[in-house]
Computed example of a mutant assay.
Amino acid sequence: MSTAFPTVSVLVPTYNRAGFLKQAIDSVLAQTFGDFELVISDNASTDDTQALVQSYSDARIIYSRNPRNIGWQANMKRCLALARGEYVTFLPDDDLMMPENLERKVCILRRYPYVGLVHSRFHMIDEEGQIIRDSTNWGHGPERDFDVIESGYAVLKRMLTGFCEVNLPTALFRRDVRDRVGEWTDQLHHTDDYEYWMRIAVCYDVAYLASPLIKWRWHQGSLTSQHIKESATGVTAEGLCEQLLAKRMVLERYWYRIPEVAALKRMVRQETRNRVVLQADVMLDNGVSRQEARAFLLKMCRTFPELCLSFNVWKTFLKTVLSPRSVQILKAVCRP
């Protein structure tokens, strides 16, 4: 490498995925931008991961093996602790980079110092590597056909009142953002990246590239597939709770830096009520027991006490207590 410290740290947390990992490594080594380190943190794999990595002779590869499995989230933080680059990107061990991924994104961060994070479209691939969604931003915000740099507030507002707009493997961010926004949280298990992107958006602008620069693999063993469902809500009950917690954490931590924060808080509260009611209704419509749906509502009310003031939440709660026949009778009695 041309400098003592690399420009980019590519961080690959891995566990027992030697087959996918080889493809991931090869996609990084094929980058048109070569000033990077490839940090692979092996979470005590029991397959051929160590032998695979050690079969490469490229000096840019840094291999670290945990003595025991410390979990996905802790391994992510382990990767961050090992990173030395000016810019950082995560590449889950089952995903791939397109050849120009680093070059295109490094160019943006070098040209625009007020941009803290750049992300992009991606190809969605299956277990065999076949494209199942071409050039998409599926599940991560609007499908825009143009590159754009947006104010952090605009991105933050959409993510607070909607969904996560940054797909983890597509994001390249400045390592020194942690000096302003802190370290990766350990209070969330599935939406820690979502919460971090919102924190970055509080302090920096955000760039989006319309070109697909990542191949994001969707398969039954992926972490994402375990927490997202193809349903009316697009998320599990557990995932919804974490999404809403991430938003509350950002609002509580940065209320003094966010414009129109009072109005935003009202919008987030309204969205919380709507999504909790929708989630419970979908659970009931999909055959989930009334007891399980009721437990979900009670958990959400304990986590977000303001839900107890919502008429719609109480109305939905009654559906989990009364039989469908009783609900119909009650509706008939209450009808004007």
Score class of each variant (00 low, 15 high):
D179W: 04
R273C: 14
A44D: 14
G34W: 03
Q23R: 14
R104F: 01
L188N: 02
T236A: 02
T191F: 13
G152C: 08
E100D: 15
F311C: 12
L21N: 07
E195N: 09
I228S: 09
L209Y: 04
H227Y: 11
T89Q: 08
L244M: 15
A24H: 08
F33M: 05
K265V: 11
I40M: 00
I108W: 01
N75G: 00
L322T: 01
G162C: 03
L82Y: 04
D176W: 10
V166Q: 07
D147C: 06
E260F: 08
P259Q: 11
C301P: 09
N167H: 11
R269L: 15
W72E: 12
V277F: 06
S2M: 09
H189P: 02
T303D: 02
Q226S: 13
Y114F: 12
T89A: 08
G182D: 12
T272G: 05
V313C: 05
E252F: 03
V181S: 01
G34E: 12
A30C: 10
H227L: 00
D126T: 01
G162S: 07
Y114C: 04
L251S: 00
S231E: 01
R302C: 13
I108E: 06
D134P: 01
E252M: 09
L297W: 02
M124F: 04
Q328A: 13
L213A: 09
E230H: 11
I125A: 09
H119T: 12
Q130T: 05
L109A: 08
L168P: 04
L240E: 07
P305T: 11
L38H: 06
P67L: 08
F317H: 07
V12H: 03
L38W: 03
G19T: 13
N69W: 08
A237Q: 00
V88A: 10
L297I: 13
P6V: 05
R257M: 15
E103P: 04
V155R: 03
E230G: 11
K22F: 05
L109K: 06
T89W: 06
G141Q: 06
G34Y: 03
V313G: 01
L117I: 10
F173M: 09
Y153N: 11
V202S: 07
H219E: 07
R266I: 11
L223H: 15
L102D: 06
D47R: 02
S211F: 00
L11K: 04
A237H: 06
R178W: 03
S27Y: 03
D176V: 11
L29V: 07
C164E: 13
V277S: 02
R325W: 09
E183C: 00
N312I: 01
